[in-house]
């Protein structure tokens, strides 16, 4: 075979492979949305789920998903940013830094079900909280922290060294430089990374099965006392999230309209993740334009 012909054929094959991915995504998205959007209605989003009859909604699951996401990010973002600053600014090359890097790498490669099992062992059984929102959020923190550390470290490192040196040359101390120069400059990168990580946390289910549980108590949305049993804000109550709900009704549920509910819930889930993605892109570029004065 002539090498020019081989080149043509290879080019064709490579284009084909790339096309497969695009077709796959378009197919998946249009399938999820076409099947799901007809099932999304105001009452679907605002009525509680049912355990036996048809016609249940996803109100509590939707709230739980956002609430667990919020609590998770509340813990993960400060911890991850500080960890990133440590890795970028304080870590000396050596055995300890190498060890911390290995730890982060290991946390990043843990299967999420293993993180869930750890949560079950520690938060549910050893500490004895049972299935709780806070247990779920802590498990998700473990799952999410390596991403946040990496994002923050990259963002801090990508600040031009002249900016940092100028600040140090003015006699400003290291920590003060970090606070007033590096963090503001790294902020867009950290924010974008945090929003993208939120998308991942939002859809996570395996780590929550054994930590936040498969059920939600009856909630009273008028009750804002975070210590009350029926309050949605109580962090010591079990909470089934949207993705766990999809899994649960498909594998253990007995409601007759499994497909409708799961289709609707999948579409809500995918649309939320899409929204997180778009938000991250838009915020990233807007803030970048603002602080760098570039078009």
């Amino acid at each position: 075979m002539n090498s020019r012909v081989a080149d043509r054929i290879a080019t064709g094959v490579l284009i084909g492979l790339a096309t497969i991915i695009v077709v796959l995504l378009v197919g998946l998205f249009s399938y999820i949305l076409a099947k799901g959007i007809p099932n999304i209605s105001w009452s679907f989003l605002t009525s509680p789920s049912s355990t036996v009859q048809a016609g249940g909604g996803i109100r509590d699951q939707l709230f739980n998903s956002f609430y667990i996401l919020f609590i998770t990010m509340l813990i993960t973002v400060p911890l991850g940013v500080l960890g990133g600053i440590y890795m970028a600014e304080y870590a000396q090359p050596g055995k300890i830094t190498h060890f911390i890097r290995s730890c982060i790498e290991m946390l990043a490669s843990l299967p999420s079900i293993v993180v869930g099992m750890f949560g079950l062992l520690i938060f549910v059984n050893t500490i004895g909280w049972g299935y709780t929102i806070i247990g779920g959020a802590l498990a998700l923190t473990i799952f999410n922290i390596p991403v946040m550390v990496r994002v923050s470290e990259d963002a801090v490192r990508s600040v031009p060294s002249e900016q940092k040196e100028a600040s140090l040359a003015l006699g400003i101390t290291h920590w003060h430089t970090i606070k007033t120069v590096l963090i503001p400059a790294a902020f867009p990168g950290i924010l974008t990374g945090a929003i993208l990580a939120s998308g991942r946390v939002f859809g996570e289910a395996a780590a929550l099965l054994f930590t936040a549980g498969l059920s939600t108590p009856k909630l009273n949305y008028m009750n804002w006392n975070p210590f009350s049993e029926t309050s949605p804000l109580n962090i010591f109550r079990p909470a089934e999230t949207l993705s766990v709900h999809i899994w649960e009704i498909n594998t253990q549920g007995i409601i007759p309209d499994v497909e409708e509910v799961a289709n609707g819930a999948s579409a809500v889930l995918v649309l939320s993740v899409l929204l997180f993605n778009l938000l991250a892109r838009w915020l990233g570029s807007t803030i970048h334009k603002k602080i760098t004065a570039s078009k």
């Binding site: 790339a18 991915i21 998946l28 999820i32 859809g203 289910a205 995918v270 993740v273 899409l274």
Partner: peptide, 24 residues
């Protein structure tokens, strides 16, 4: 074209993949 496509594929939660696998 492919970069956003791949980012979106990453974003689809695993239960949704499972559910589509189950129904399709």
């Amino acid at each position: 074209i492919l970069q956003p496509v791949i980012e979106l594929l990453v974003g689809i939660p695993s239960v949704v993949y499972g559910f589509i696998g189950l129904t399709v």
